[in-house]
């Protein structure tokens, strides 16, 4: 298949575009690495906001940053005990 690709004039990506793409990915991870203290502060603030709408299990709450190949996600697992009736 490769031979056909080359025969059809398909070019391999330049080494510069490989560098740029690799750099983008590595920076997504670098920039997402935040301190445990910051994550803890974020968790406290989240709990404050959410608990005005519902009763939640603060001890069972987990807030983490998950990163895969190309993106970073903030994942919060917050067990709900009771939803406040309005």
């Amino acid at each position: 298949m490769d031979i056909f690709g080359k025969a059809a004039g398909k070019q391999e990506p330049s080494s510069k575009s490989i560098a740029k793409e690799r750099l983008r990915l590595v920076l997504v991870h670098d920039r997402a690495s935040i301190s445990p203290q910051l994550l803890e502060n974020l968790k406290e603030d989240l709990l404050k906001v959410i608990s005005s709408y519902m009763e939640i299990d603060e001890l069972g709450t987990e807030v983490t940053l998950n990163s895969n190949e190309s993106s970073v996600a903030l994942i919060a697992s917050i067990p709900v005990i009771k939803i406040n009736r309005i």
């Binding site: 330049s14 080494s15 510069k16 575009s17 560098a19 740029k20 750099l23 983008r24 920076l27």
Partner: peptide
């Protein structure tokens, strides 16, 4: 090297 596509150029670096 930039011209040959073998080195990141000014715009690439500023962009990042």
């Amino acid at each position: 090297m930039v011209k040959k596509g073998d080195m990141m150029d000014i715009d690439d670096i500023i962009d990042i």
